[in-house]
């Protein structure tokens, strides 16, 4: 059983390359049971999205939850 800390490491690593099947299964089980790590996973995706928008300057109008943001200052 993975600890939350191990889950955060794997979730970050999953943004670099596809995880092994065994790792994906273990993650899935943990995430299904752990709200904190589930939120963490979404926050990781959110950060990646924010970084993209910062560079690409998409002109979204409103922030709602998590993935919609205003145009960046660049």
């Amino acid at each position: 059983m993975l600890s939350c800390r191990e889950v955060t490491l794997l979730l970050s690593e999953s943004l670099e390359h596809p995880l092994k099947l065994r790792e994906r299964m273990a993650l899935k089980i943990h995430l299904a049971m752990c709200d904190g790590c589930h939120s963490f996973e979404k926050q990781m995706f959110s950060l990646r999205g924010v970084a993209k928008q910062y560079v690409n300057g998409l002109a979204d109008e409103l922030i709602k939850c998590e993935d919609e943001l205003p145009p960046p200052p660049l």
């Binding site: 939120s39 963490f40 979404k42 709602k64 200052p73």
Partner: peptide
Amino acid sequence: RPSQWCDPEASLSQKDFW
């Protein structure tokens, strides 16, 4: 423990986010 990221007052302060 991480909780969901939402921003209720976001529309007031979009520039501030960046």
